[in-house]
Amino acid sequence: MKILVCISNVPDTTTKVKFIDDQKKLDVTGIQWVINPWDELALTRALELKDDASNGVQTVTVAHVGLVSAEPTIRKALAIGADDAIRVNTDPADAYGIAAQLAEVLKTEKYDIILCGIESSDHNGSTVGGMLAEFLDCPSVTCVSSLNIEGGQTVISREIDGGKESLTVPMPFVAVVQKGIAKEPRIAAMRGIMAARTKPIRVYEPQAIENFTEVLNYEMPKPRAACKYVDAENAGQLIDLLQNEARVF
């Protein structure tokens, strides 16, 4: 069994974002780039599954659509424990572009389980996994919070509004995973960092794909009004303000 984990390269979640060129472009000065947090959890789960030999996972591969500048992030995934990597050499214009490029590669490379994070922390699209499944004409399961292999069959738990469902789905499939899929992201050890240097990254040249969407410009959120303080000794006054001034209940 082979697992593929799709990863995005995103600014560290503590980044204070700024935009340049008439608010059209992200100012990348000083930005620390990391594996998208949900993708990192997906990778961790894939490696946990591989660790238990009875699951029969042979390899864990990571895939990324992006320029060579993303290679440190790909190497980090290899250092954490992925066996090898795919990179499609293009700066994708939108999520559709990413999914289409990956689908093209997956015409020749075959995987049984494809994991994607629920969203990337930059464009918050929640789209690549579902798109990829539709391109591949295979099932998808979204909001997956646990994934196990039992007797060669995949047992999944997905979050629904107000609860959880347990389900099974035949391979190959795409699982779009969220919080809960793995407890803590795995951290690269020194041995892993050394090993990552020589692990293969297969670079594919992109297909010509038209973009469906375009970001015209970015805006910063409007500053909120200054905080109105209530004295701690007189905390009950807060309830009056919420009821009679903000009128929220």
């Binding site: 939108d94 999520a95 559709y96 699209g125 929640s126 579902g130 909001c143 509004d161 779009v176 969407t213």
Partner: peptide, 24 residues
């Protein structure tokens, strides 16, 4: 909706209908 179900269906629809998507 951009809820669990919308996140499951909208991206697949995007490919099926060749339709650009904006989420959230």
């Amino acid at each position: 909706s951009n809820n669990n179900t919308g996140k499951a269906l909208a991206p697949r629809l995007s490919v099926k209908l060749k339709a650009g998507i904006a989420s959230g």
